[in-house]
Amino acid sequence: MTHVSDTVIPYMVKPHPVTGIPNGKLGIWLFLASEVMLFGALFSSYVLIRTGAPHWPPEGGLTSEIVNVPLGTFNTAVLITSSITMVLAWAACKLKNLARARLWLALTIGLALVFLVVKYFEYSHKFELGHFPSHDNFYAIYFTLTGLHGLHIVGGIVVLSYLAGPGAKLWNTDPEHFTNRVENVGLYWHFVDLVWIFLFPSLYLL
């Protein structure tokens, strides 16, 4: 009788003969495809709300006057930097340097936290002015899109922390499997960066 723990999930390291890639990588790409639709539906709602409004933002003036463009720009740079630290963590795994990989993972986590701290200050400033999601359509879509994106950052921090911390033990028994995990979380992380690349001009500059 076999236990669940004895069952080896096939093709986690070696490429599957049909797809040519390990199953985990196909899985993360299918997940990202669903994420495209999640953010796509909300982005589409934004287009609908915006094109239907007589003025945008609804209170008049310019979007750049009610958001903090320098902070948004800073956060964009932070996420771009976290994308390169992420890819360097994977590259360090490829070069068989676990200590270096964990350092890059830690830096990625640090940058993700910086992003969230900046977002916290942006949110609290809006709350102080009484600008909650219910204030008008701009704040409704602003908080929905940036909030969902922020949750993705939090999710990324959890997985990255696992890989940099206890999850790194896998390196001792199966370094290739660990490298694939870093690659897969990297794909997710770059996607979160990619979403922000569209959110930033849409919500801050236009």
Binding site: T19, L26, A33, G40, S44, V47
Partner: peptide, 22 residues
């Protein structure tokens, strides 16, 4: 690999559709 391109082409198609809904 091809399989990822296939997934992404399908995704791009549906993404375009959802953007055109408004």
């Amino acid at each position: 690999k091809k399989v990822i391109y296939a997934v992404l082409i399908l995704t791009a198609l549906f993404f375009a559709l959802v953007l055109m809904l408004p």
